[in-house]
Design a protein around this nucleic acid. Structure first.
Lengths: 324, 324
DNA sequence: CTGAAAGCGCTTACAG
DNA sequence: CTGAAAGCGCTTACAG
């Protein structure tokens, strides 16, 4: 590594002078300046920001980390947008981490960064990871994820499930299927539980439940195609009247099957992504943007107040009735 | 600021021991550890990452800055997605900066960050800003922006304009209006120039040109509403047969006016946002995701090779004919 | 298991 | 205009 010492030696001055040049060249003779600049170029010297910031006593943190798993889906994008808005307002920057692969390494990297706090999107972290954060006094807020005793801004997925079930009941639909992913996420568990609970209260049992195998490294649309196949099969081989999908993108696949087979099956999604409006999909709306925005405001709050009582913010989803 | 010295004093040990505790507590007596941990809690001590990184010789940069103006529009979001993908592949993180307000301050902040390089989205930077980057040996690549002698990944907006004009000509449409923004951006200038050039070659002159006043702090949909009004007025008061809009979101407003007035006017947008498919909007597609992805790969390249020849990558837009 | 001391790469008041 | 030296907050080989 080329340091200020190397530059000083090559240009025949002390590091003090090199430093002066680096800082704008006030009080430096023109010729000296040129010599130094020359040496910098020759050595392709790049000042070390870390050292400089330490020397200058610049310890202000104005960056919030955002921890994402795998890809940015449209839903997460809206969360991100909200975060961006909330953080920009307070002149904070966003540092995005992807913990999809090398999770452990990335976590160790995160605590080395000069961060004010961290926003964790749609996933929980292990006790070990929490410990790591604690040692480094790194505050965090969960987004779209609930955990007792932690700061979390989340959506009432159970209620979302209720809403979907009530919609079917209002339409007098009894033969119902569920289509989701095969990985157990908090979001899906609660949605489906809320859905089933309302149904059983009304004496209805789910006819069948299908789970698409989740593929981490694929664009999510691949799952939509799986959903299309499954729906087709369901329509052809069963007397199902309605399907509740884990999310809109899965429902889109269902819509395609429905159309192709000219079926009159009822379909309900979850998320209310932008496209759902144009597909006229009946769905449960989650205000993703708000989650992000609240998240941004709250992490800033947590940092400032070093609050002991965890922040809990539960957002209610809404039924959006369209034509499916 | 509370430092390791304060903790050492309060717990009656030296900084060496505190440091050991901070680093996992290997070779520290249990009681000592507890004393230190106690002091840390009492003082709410937060280790200084800057100092630690300097001491540990951790100078690896694995972060790329992304400079955005104002808000994240759907188009920029797709660029971001591409960047995210390309950077994640190489285990780099993204640090997002918003230069919408306090531009100068933010730039000064950027060069203080420990960044490997910077991606500048859809905007040029001034000579002064370039100088700043040069002094700090900060490499950058323009995305969706062209400048001679700089690294840039851009879209051929002139060609995009050509494509739109040719479409109108193929439909035998002669009475044409242009709807754009009132700020002069490179993107709009080139699009409209390309459009007009083809028309004049065919002996056609633009009938009228309208410019919506750009509002920085508003969601872009506000501009769509303006566009709706303007289009309505154009349909009602002129014999225009076709309108070319600066971007899809403006075209959506036009679509609404067209529908309301049951007009048969031809409408063509620019971008091909996801919703455009459902609106059946004829438009010029810009592969935003690709720009981001190439951008990520290229900035990484620029850093590694300290290339002298600027990287230029021109991406061609495509006409997407739908029903409008 | 713990401390004294040197060092990470840079900056800056002080003296000349 | 320039240098010698102390210092930023932390880590770590060395010695005990």
């Amino acid at each position: 590594m080329i340091t200020i010492n190397d530059v000083a030696k090559l240009s025949g001055v002390t590091t003090a002078t090199v430093s002066r040049v680096l800082n704008g060249g006030k009080n430096v003779k023109k010729e000296t300046m040129e010599k130094v600049l020359d040496a910098i170029k020759k050595l392709n010297y790049k000042p070390n920001k870390i050292a400089r910031n330490l020397a200058k006593g610049r310890f202000t943190e104005s960056t919030i980390g955002v921890i994402l798993t795998v890809a940015i889906y449209p839903f997460f994008y809206n969360i991100l947008k909200g975060i961006y808005r909330g953080l920009s307002e307070q002149n904070y920057n966003i540092l995005i981490f992807n913990i999809g692969k090398n999770r452990k390494e990335v976590f160790e990297h995160i605590v080395k960064e000069n961060l004010s706090g961290v926003l964790i999107v749609a996933t929980g972290i292990s006790e070990e990871e929490k410990m790591l954060f604690q040692i480094h006094n790194m505050k965090f807020v969960y987004l779209d994820f609930f955990e007792e005793n932690e700061n979390s801004i989340f959506i009432d997925n159970y209620l979302g499930g209720n809403l979907a079930a009530n919609y079917f009941i209002s339409k007098n639909i009894n033969k119902i299927a569920l289509v989701g992913e095969d990985r157990k996420t908090q979001q899906q568990e609660n949605r489906f539980l809320g859905f089933k609970d309302v149904l059983s209260k009304n004496g209805i049992n789910i006819k069948t439940e299908r789970h698409i195998s989740f593929m981490e490294n694929m664009p999510y649309s691949v799952h939509g195609k799986e959903s299309y196949k499954i729906t087709k099969e369901l329509i052809e081989n069963t007397d199902i009247e309605g399907i509740f999908y884990y999310c809109d993108e899965l429902a889109y696949g269902g819509l395609k099957a429905k159309k192709e087979l000219k079926s009159s099956i009822f379909i309900i999604g979850y998320d209310d992504l932008p496209s759902s409006r144009y597909f006229k999909l009946t769905t449960i709306r989650q205000p993703a943007y708000l989650i992000g925005y609240y998240g941004a405001r709250n992490i800033l709050n947590v940092i400032k107040t070093s609050n002991m009582v965890p922040i809990k913010k539960c957002i209610s989803p809404k039924l959006v009735v369209r034509k499916t």
